[in-house]
Design a protein around this nucleic acid. Structure first.
Lengths: 218, 218
DNA sequence: TAATATTTTTCGAATAACCATAATTATATT
DNA sequence: AATATAATTATGGTTATTCGAAAAATATTA
């Protein structure tokens, strides 16, 4: 039985993995906000259930099953987000929390129906890919705004963090997916950037923010 | 913290109460499919949390809080059912199970939005009333088809059971809410009825079925 | 490589939700 | 009053989740 906690562990391992970071127990513990022994204990259980490959003192990996199941949870999450925005009229900053709850629902038909209604979307409202029913997806290679150079022009394609805080900040500047951004200036001291938005207004964003704006160069 | 099990107890007590049946521990146990000591134990907890009035050896009642909270769970359930049918295109026989899961979601905004999109519906797809945000609703007084006499004509207004089995049976006969039904014959032996549907075809229904067809006489 | 720091593991245990059986005690019925 | 029914208490079990302390392994660094 995949319980909610186990699903969250699975997701966490999955995300660390995607990040190319080694999946260590301490990293997992930090992410899940529990102690290392707790993680160790849980990981053993996940291993006996066939979700992770676990050998003492070695970094974790997901089994094929684990990868698939994690991807399917992410699928539920992102389909839900898309449905909430496209069909129910929520703002992109409101949906993460709701989806966090709904991703644990078991009714497959519900998510299948969302998928159908949305026309098999491949991206969620934050530009992240939606895995298909087999757990497969193609991650587009985007650049971080923070990696661009002065004068570069790009379009916002995804945000690396779907927290309400970041999204509200973008809302305030009228920035959405697809918005054109040009690096007007880079402050070398703190790597903050002055960004020209859609060829009209300029705004300054911290490095922390720019790192999370995933763009495609023109 | 209302856990899923506690919410289900609350709902069960609420339904027994609505049924005018005395809420005894054995009745509850039967409904919840657990032993009486288990119920007893749980009821004490519900009492300390302020949801039920519990005195030893006396039948249970819900407190005002209990009534409200139970009604709010029912609200979530029925709003969800309505949303699934009206907006997502599910059949009335498919939605009970999904709503059974979704009623335990905490995101209030989700249900508020459903309510808004649906235009504050007062009935679910099975004709049951949807409590408002304060937990209030008015239950329409319907008759059971099984209580009508030969020749009586009535419209189906609600079904007393939203199991897929019953609803599929009705689907097969093309019976929906609003369908006109006339009692053509009553078999005194087993109280089954021959029913004329929309002035065209006749079908026989068992007493068990007729009891669950809630109608309004013409 | 030896010393030190960091991670991981094991161990022992706690808590919270559930649930059950057996035996006792009330209450209801006849 | 005797009997049947229902509720209660007592006791105990499982599962899921978590922790801290101490030991063991691995990694780092001087």
């Amino acid at each position: 039985m995949p319980t909610q906690t186990k699903e969250n562990y699975l997701k966490a391992i999955y995300f660390l993995d995607q990040n190319n970071s080694e999946v260590t127990l301490t990293a997992l513990g930090k992410l899940m906000e529990v102690s290392t022994p707790t993680v160790n204990n849980m990981v053993k259980k996940l291993a006996t259930k066939g979700w992770v490959n676990y050998e003492k003192y070695k970094p974790l990996t997901l089994t094929d099953l684990g990868k698939k199941d994690a991807a399917l949870i992410v699928r539920k999450h992102r389909l839900t987000e898309m449905f909430l925005v496209q069909i129910m009229g929520f703002g992109w900053e409101e949906v993460h929390e709701i989806a966090e709850e709904m991703e644990h629902l078991n009714s497959e038909v519900l998510f299948d129906r969302m998928d159908l209604i949305l026309g098999n979307p491949t991206q969620d409202p934050h530009g992240s890919p939606i895995p298909d029913k087999d757990g497969n997806f193609t991650r587009k290679k985007y650049l971080k705004l923070s990696d661009l150079r002065q004068g570069d022009v790009a379009y916002l394609r995804a945000v690396g963090d779907s927290s309400a805080e970041l999204l509200l900040l973008l809302n305030a500047k009228n920035i959405k997916l697809g918005t054109q951004l040009q690096v007007a200036e880079i402050e070398s001291y703190d790597k903050s950037m002055v960004v020209r938005i859609e060829n009209s207004s300029n705004s300054t964003f911290s490095y922390e923010v720019c790192k999370r704006l995933l763009v495609e160069k023109i």
